[in-house]
């Protein structure tokens, strides 16, 4: 029995390409994947581009220029299922730091001829512009989680991925809590699992690159680390404003400190 292979497209908006690379990084699985999926559009892998429609579109990157506003709508129109991959696509990425600053002032400082720059004042996630079927968090995304998303798509299932905290991954592996045992700042309790507690395993506090977990409460963590670990307001804002600066829970907490000031 032969069945038409579903057609896959991989799109890039404002991003570093690292999440698309996670797909190419699936070396052992790529050939199997190719038997079941027709890779129709994937610029990072091949310049051969086939026109739509597509069964599955993986979208990397945030929306940060006027052209992208139109392009993302065209992609939605041509795709049966849209999955946003990575921090840029799900929360605006590192470049969402601009959301907290004056874009004109920044452009003047950075570029010799700011007049040539066409940009939006905010870097925003894909879901702010079109309906997204699934968001895969992480900076960069986990290859294992990406394979779960692709496998679930092929099997016609919903991906089963954790929405709990990084702490659960530490505890399952018996990794010592850096926060309690050494008073180190760690965003693990407010961040979604998926990385396998990579940083805590290497003696570093989690810096939240997988974004807010379900029911993330940065405010409660902030109140504690400021009082008990003597983290300054300024440093707490910096902790929240990195790869997931634009994620609503993190952004809300960092902005609260600016309002207070």
């Amino acid at each position: 029995m032969t069945r038409r292979r579903p057609r896959l497209a991989v799109w890039k908006f404002t991003s570093c390409d690292g999440c698309q690379l996670s797909l190419l990084d699936c070396e052992d699985e790529l050939l199997t994947l190719d038997r079941h999926i027709d890779i129709a559009y994937f610029m990072e892998a091949t310049s051969r581009a086939e026109p739509g429609p597509y069964d599955l579109s993986l979208v990397e990157g945030s929306i940060s220029t006027p052209e992208q506003l139109e392009q993302i709508v065209r992609i939605r129109d041509q795709s049966r299922v849209v999955v946003a991959i990575g921090a840029c696509a799900t929360s605006g990425g590192l470049q969402a730091l601009r959301n907290f600053a004056d874009i004109d002032e920044m452009t003047r400082v950075v570029y010799a001829s700011p007049a040539h720059i066409q940009t939006l004042s905010c870097s925003t996630p894909i879901s702010q512009h079109i309906a997204v079927d699934f968001e895969l968090q992480g900076c960069p995304i986990s290859k294992t989680q990406l394979l779960e998303v692709l496998g679930a798509f092929l099997r016609g299932e919903r991906p089963v991925l954790p929405t709990y905290s990084v702490c659960v991954e530490c505890k399952l592996q018996g990794v010592l809590c850096l926060s309690v045992s050494q008073g180190r700042t760690c965003l693990g309790p407010i961040t979604q699992a998926g990385c396998g507690a990579l940083c805590p395993r290497y003696d570093r506090g989690c810096f939240g690159c997988y974004g807010p977990k379900e029911l993330s409460q940065p405010r409660a963590l902030g109140e504690f680390v400021k009082a008990q670990h003597k983290v300054s307001d300024r440093d707490w804002v910096r902790w929240l404003r990195s790869y997931q600066a634009g994620a609503s829970e993190f952004a809300k907490e960092s902005e609260r400190h600016e309002k207070d000031r």
Partner: peptide
Amino acid sequence: GNKCLACANCTLVCPTCFCSNTVEEVSLEG
């Protein structure tokens, strides 16, 4: 509810907590 992070640490360090979940790992081809 405002103070707790729902991070699950208390339950995972508790020596009597016994809850478990059943998870399946499925190959790409099923």
